[in-house]
């Protein structure tokens, strides 16, 4: 990753043009050609520096469900439970964290009702309680990652 890649990431975290030739338009702002920008994006995706290039949806406004959930899993059982939880397509990401509640994952579902169903299924399969912590209020973050 070089200085131009960093510039691309900083520029495109804020948005991407919705027009006929969006790469050409974005490339112009970055002082690149359209082909150069596409090639660099392809490389950043291949390296895993970018996880995705496209839309971030607002789950609730699309009729979907979104929540943060936590579980307390004894270390000896952690791998088994992590495997079971991660097998659900609705689990978007899952982190082990330093706390008695040591497993934290985000659930994203196509419908709101499906959140409770998936949480119940996880409890039944794993044998452990799931703490559901949906957001009550989101505080707006203006700035993204500066790289």
């Amino acid at each position: 990753m070089d200085a131009k890649d960093r510039e691309i990431i900083n520029e495109l975290q804020g948005g991407f043009p919705v027009c006929e030739h969006p790469y050409a338009e974005a490339a112009h702002r970055l002082d690149l050609t359209e082909d150069e920008l596409i090639e660099r994006l392809r490389a950043l995706l291949a390296q895993g520096i970018l996880s995705r290039f496209g839309p971030m949806y607002h789950a609730e406004r699309m009729g979907g469900g979104l929540t943060l959930a936590a579980m307390q899993i004894p270390p000896a059982d952690f791998e088994r439970v992590a495997g079971q939880v991660n097998a659900f397509a609705e689990v978007a990401h899952n982190y082990a964290r330093d706390h008695a509640l040591n497993m934290w994952f985000v659930l994203a579902t196509e419908t709101r009702e499906r959140i409770d169903e998936v949480l119940r299924e996880i409890e039944q399969q794993t044998g452990y309680r799931v703490y559901n912590m949906p957001k009550i209020e989101e505080f707006f973050i203006g700035l993204r990652f500066a790289v």
């Binding site: 495109l12 975290q13 948005g15 290039f53 496209g54 971030m56």
Partner: peptide, 9 residues
């Protein structure tokens, strides 16, 4: 419904 469009790092 789309809150942001761009790169996700």
């Amino acid at each position: 419904a789309i809150k942001r469009f761009g790169v996700i790092v």
